[in-house]
């Protein structure tokens, strides 16, 4: 297995995390923004949809971290130092959100306390993706500087607040949140439809279309800030051979998703929003041009060891033989058409 293959594998895991755990985060924002006559039912559906799977979805993040430090240890060290602060913020968000969700589900008396945990869950769900997006933005900002030390190891030379405190990082953070909420609303619309709760489904359809529009506007904002603040990234977004086709395809898929949402073709819409988010990640990955920290650390110089690369395929194959069927079973039991109605 080559270092480049692992680079793309990490990309695949990021996509898996975004379209599963990302939607769980997005669900939290819809909990926060629950309105109208079906407000409580909206919250219940979100909780029911997330409960059996959120812990599994969350583990994609661990997978990314483990791949990073086993295969690209220099990158892990550099990122851990340069982005210490935002990573801590994400961790606080993850801890509070997961705990609050389970505390609410296995709630305590009185109901007021339960509702408080619900708010903690909702607020941290909405805030964490912004920090996650800011971290990714920092990696592609070109602001993080790295120098080789005497032993040839890359060491961070820029400050601890570089890259993730810029307007560009904030724009990417908001864009990430918009994508996650768009995924969540689309999944929830479909889930409500399967359960035969058509009004609830319409609530979430409307929310999905709004988030698509917001995500589109924020995508423009991200491009503008990239142009102003991160010339290398902006250049790559346009100039890499596959960049423009990927951007154009993303836009086309987004439009198709809106059409399907409006026409109530929710199963297709669900597939389209997944493809859309995957394409956004792919487009970003192409623009990163093989770097783990743009302009500072290429994946070929990130400390990959031949011995690790040689053994990794066996570990991945062995693990997947058990993991893939189990994951398929989990989603079949809880997310298939017949199961959804039985859990409610």
């Amino acid at each position: 297995m080559s270092a480049t293959a692992v680079y793309w594998l990490i990309g695949v895991a990021v996509i898996a995390y975004a379209v599963t755990a990302g939607a769980d985060f997005g669900g939290g924002l819809w909990d926060l923004l629950a309105t109208g006559p079906r407000r409580e039912r909206q919250r219940e559906l979100i909780a029911e949809a997330i409960a059996p799977i959120w812990e599994v979805n969350h583990i994609w993040m661990i997978f990314v971290v483990v791949m990073l430090f086993s295969v690209f240890p220099h990158a892990f060290a550099v990122v851990s130092i340069a982005l210490h602060v935002p990573i801590l913020l994400v961790l606080v968000g993850i801890v509070l959100r997961g705990s609050a969700f389970i505390f609410r589900a296995y709630g305590m008396e009185p109901d007021e306390r339960r509702a408080q945990w619900g708010r903690v869950f909702a607020i941290t769900s909405a805030a964490t993706p912004i920090a996650l997006g800011a971290i990714l933005a920092a990696l592609s900002s070109g602001d993080i500087l790295v120098e080789l030390d005497a032993a040839g190891a890359p060491q961070v030379r820029s400050g601890f607040f570089v890259g993730w405190t810029s307007p560009f990082a904030l724009a990417v953070g908001l864009f990430t949140l918009a994508l996650f909420t768009m995924l969540a609303a689309t999944y929830l619309a479909r889930e409500a439809q399967v359960r035969g709760e058509l009004e609830l489904s319409i609530d979430f359809r409307r929310r999905a279309v709004i988030s698509e529009a917001v995500a589109g506007a924020l995508a423009m904002l991200v491009c503008w800030r990239a142009w102003a603040e991160s010339p290398e990234l902006f250049h790559n977004l346009l100039a890499q051979p596959w960049s423009l086709p990927a951007q154009a395809l993303t836009a086309a898929v987004a439009v198709a998703a809106i059409v399907c949402l409006r026409r109530d073709m929710l199963q297709v819409a669900r597939a389209l929003v997944i493809v859309q988010v995957a394409l956004v990640v792919v487009g970003w990955g192409v623009a990163m041009d093989g770097d783990l920290v743009l302009g500072a650390l290429d994946h070929q110089d990130a400390g990959a060891r031949e011995a690790v690369l040689a053994r990794l395929p066996y570990v991945l194959a062995g693990g997947s033989v058990l993991f893939v069927p189990a994951l398929w079973w989990l989603f079949r039991v809880f997310k298939s058409e017949t199961a959804s109605s039985a859990t409610s």
Binding site: V56, I59, V66, V71, P73, A307, V315, G319, A326
Partner: peptide
């Protein structure tokens, strides 16, 4: 520590990841 140990302890951590997934 992780810069040097990462590749050496990555194997059990990867396997742990799968076990945890399951």
């Amino acid at each position: 520590f992780m810069r040097h140990a990462g590749p050496l302890v990555g194997m059990p951590f990867s396997l742990e990841g799968f076990a945890f997934f399951l």
